[in-house]
Design a protein around this nucleic acid. Structure first.
Lengths: 242, 242
DNA sequence: CTACAAGTGGAACGTCCGGTCCACTTGCGT
DNA sequence: ACGCAAGTGGACCGGACGTTCCACTTGTAG
């Protein structure tokens, strides 16, 4: 029979031998997941993704057996942009300028995609495509930090751990403010770059603070969004009055 | 049709006329919630709280109809400590020293109680006891910032919004690291205090960075903790345990 | 001591989740 | 054109959650 057994069963890798309609469905799933992850974070239910994509839950589960597989496929290209940001920064003739630009760029990527913000603050051992790119970017970051320190503009006591911590912190700010104060993250980054600048170095200008009203609305929004089930309707006509 | 005998069951207020055993159960619920909120955040299920307290779900629901009511009762005393921290800072003869100490104290409170970390990053309009104390602390913070600026040690462009942003950022760091790198928050605060210090002012020393291994473990932990259902058998040994 | 209301927890919903099964449909090589 | 395997989605299961109901227990006032 000589069946063309080009079937890669290995999950997580790009299944090249998919049937045309299956490949189309895969793309629709990825597009839907990209949308939902970006707006709602990584915790959206798989059922929601399937609904948004217009496919059955079984199809989603067959193509991406675990949420991590889906995350891996969805954010691979974002991670490419991440790696690209490091490369671009390394190409900057002024390493300190490259470093500050890199930090701002990456944090802006987080702000633009809530799911990606969380991805950068976590590790997914099973998401091999993702983690390979993360490792690559990490390598470049180490070199970028080394060069920036050599110029004397980046403080000597700043380490790559500080970048990880900044990404976690930024993820927290974005989770709280992305709806109503979408520029708040910029303020955090401005402060951190000030802290990273060696004494005598001119730090980048500090962005304006978000308005108090916007921040307050963000804090309410957060409380609501995290616990959506609490929104109760009117109790209605209850027979036994207490 | 029942004649409203005693209708005003205003939630959130302290029910003074509870039967003795009911009051005891109330305390057990509060103690259980305090424990669970502190270790797991505000999103623990009400069923878990009831189980931990050793009471039925109905009892919990009767005493605290919404999660916000429970949060209000649990964190009222923590908020007292929060107000106390401001008061203490205002009593410091050196406003800059008072300010830095306040920031560190509050962020340490967040680190010690994950639920409280989230409370400080959100607003709960229905939690009147909580919000009253928050407003009081906010008032004191404004004065503290004013005085610290007057000494010339706190930068002029720092505002109270920055404190809110710091609390959100710190909540993010703590959510990611509280298990395996419990000192990471300290590093963030150290950087922020550097950024807050006016040029020429000696900023507080920067705490040491957490170990790379601990941070890495924290990032894995976060991914697992957020999505507990994903826990499946590990496919294989982790290659490079960096 | 007694009667009654305040209080209780188990059980029964209704909803949503992730995972799996299976009778259909459909692309595609022939 | 045709047949088969790849692909599909509705249906079903077990589990967790929040809510409500109700028969029972237990303080406590008189």
């Amino acid at each position: 029979m000589a069946p063309s057994t080009r079937s890669y069963a290995s999950p997580g890798t790009r299944p090249a031998g998919l049937r045309a309609d299956a490949e189309r469905n895969r793309e629709r799933i990825l597009a839907a997941a990209r949308r939902l992850f970006a707006s709602d974070g990584l915790d959206v239910s798989m059922a929601c993704v399937a609904r948004e994509a217009g496919v059955g839950k079984a199809t989603l589960a067959r193509r991406f057996p675990s949420r991590e597989d889906l995350i891996d496929a969805v954010f691979a290209d974002r991670m490419d942009a991440y790696v690209g940001a490091v490369t671009e920064a390394l190409a900057d003739p002024d390493p300190w300028h490259g470093f500050t630009g890199f930090v701002r760029n990456v944090c802006a990527m987080q702000a633009a995609d809530r799911g990606f913000a969380e991805v950068l603050a976590m590790t997914f051992p099973a998401a091999t495509a993702l983690e390979a790119r993360r490792a690559e970017a990490y390598h470049g970051l180490l070199e970028l930090i080394r060069r920036a320190k050599a110029t004397g503009h980046l403080r000597e006591d700043v380490t790559d751990q500080d970048m990880a911590i900044l990404l976690m912190a930024n993820a927290g700010v974005i989770a709280a403010t992305h709806e109503t104060a979408p520029d708040a993250w910029n303020r955090l980054v401005g402060h951190m770059l000030r802290a990273f600048a060696a004494p005598g170095t001119e730090p980048p200008p500090l962005p304006p603070a978000p308005s108090p009203a916007a921040l307050y609305r963000a804090m309410i929004q957060t409380a609501r969004a995290t616990r959506p089930a609490e929104g109760r309707a009117e109790p209605g006509a209850r027979p036994g009055g207490e």
